[in-house]
Amino acid sequence: MSPVNVPQPLTSFAAGLVVHLSFFALAASEAQRLRDLGVREGNAIHVLKNADTFVCKIEASRIALRREVAMKVFATSPGL
């Protein structure tokens, strides 16, 4: 648990948590692709799976990310 609620990679959040996306450490085109899918800075996402691949839910859409991509997406969790 982090003493200050600093943004952490998505892969550091357990399944079941709802987190708020902070920023992307990705190439501009890749970040844009995520935004197109609804994975956007400021959005709340629900972590469904955090294993070899990462799956999250935004509204009722399930989005799958390669683990290496999820590691470059930073978010905060209000609960932490």
Binding site: E30, V39, I63
Partner: peptide, 9 residues
């Protein structure tokens, strides 16, 4: 390659 995709219901 980058990979992110939507999983339909």
């Amino acid at each position: 390659s980058f990979f992110a995709m939507e999983l339909p219901p």
